[in-house]
Amino acid sequence: KKKIKIYIENENGEKKTIEIEVEGDIDEIAKELAKKYNVKIVKIEP
């Protein structure tokens, strides 16, 4: 498992940072999160 930080922006332009532990393809997981929460991924840090 890797701990990563995902910087997101919602439709109101509010920026947030999510810190999660992931296993597998980080890009795939980030895309799923973006779709699920309707946010834009700004940056992903390993």
Rank of each mutant, 00 (worst) to 15 (best):
K1T: 08
K1D: 03
K1W: 12
K1H: 08
K1G: 08
K1N: 06
K1M: 12
K2W: 14
K2P: 07
K2E: 07
K2N: 10
K2F: 15
K2Y: 15
K3R: 12
K3T: 09
K3C: 09
K3W: 15
K3I: 12
K3A: 08
I4H: 08
I4L: 08
I4Q: 02
I4D: 00
I4T: 04
K5N: 05
K5D: 02
K5W: 13
K5P: 00
I6A: 02
I6N: 00
I6D: 00
Y7H: 09
Y7T: 15
Y7W: 13
Y7C: 06
I8V: 14
I8G: 02
I8K: 00
E9V: 13
E9K: 05
E9H: 05
E9T: 04
E9Y: 04
N10S: 13
N10R: 11
N10Q: 11
N10T: 15
N10L: 15
N10C: 13
N10H: 14
E11S: 13
E11G: 10
E11W: 13
E11L: 10
E11K: 12
N12Q: 11
N12R: 13
N12H: 13
N12C: 12
N12A: 13
G13A: 03
G13D: 02
E14Y: 09
E14M: 10
E14A: 07
E14D: 12
E14L: 08
E14W: 08
K15P: 08
K15T: 15
K15W: 08
K15G: 08
K15H: 13
K15N: 09
K15C: 05
K16V: 10
K16L: 15
K16N: 12
T17P: 01
T17Q: 05
T17E: 07
T17H: 08
T17M: 13
I18E: 01
I18L: 12
I18Y: 13
I18R: 00
E19C: 07
E19F: 10
E19T: 11
E19G: 01
E19L: 11
E19M: 07
I20N: 00
I20C: 07
I20P: 00
I20V: 11
I20W: 07
I20F: 08
E21V: 10
E21F: 13
E21A: 08
E21M: 11
E21S: 07
E21C: 14
V22G: 06
V22Y: 13
V22F: 12
V22K: 01
V22P: 03
E23N: 09
G24W: 03
G24L: 02
G24T: 04
G24H: 02
D25S: 10
D25K: 04
D25G: 04
D25C: 05
D25T: 07
I26L: 09
I26F: 09
I26W: 14
D27V: 11
D27T: 11
D27P: 06
D27A: 09
E28K: 11
E28M: 11
I29W: 13
I29P: 00
I29H: 06
I29Q: 05
A30Q: 04
A30H: 05
A30V: 15
A30E: 04
A30C: 14
A30T: 07
K31L: 11
K31T: 10
K31S: 11
K31R: 14
K31Y: 09
E32K: 11
E32W: 14
E32L: 13
E32G: 07
E32S: 08
E32Q: 11
E32V: 09
E32D: 10
L33I: 15
L33V: 05
L33H: 01
L33C: 06
A34Y: 05
A34R: 06
A34W: 05
A34D: 02
A34F: 04
K35L: 14
K35Y: 08
K35S: 10
K35D: 07
K35C: 04
K35E: 13
K35V: 07
K36T: 08
K36Y: 08
Y37G: 02
Y37C: 05
Y37E: 04
Y37A: 03
Y37T: 03
N38S: 05
N38D: 04
N38R: 05
N38P: 02
N38K: 08
N38F: 04
V39K: 01
V39S: 13
V39T: 04
V39E: 03
V39R: 00
K40P: 02
K40Y: 06
K40M: 10
I41Y: 04
I41L: 05
I41K: 01
I41D: 02
I41C: 05
I41A: 04
I41V: 08
V42E: 07
V42H: 05
V42Q: 04
V42I: 15
V42M: 09
V42S: 03
V42L: 15
K43P: 02
K43W: 14
K43H: 10
K43E: 06
K43D: 06
I44W: 11
I44P: 01
I44G: 01
I44Q: 01
I44R: 01
I44Y: 06
I44L: 04
I44K: 02
P46G: 11
P46N: 13
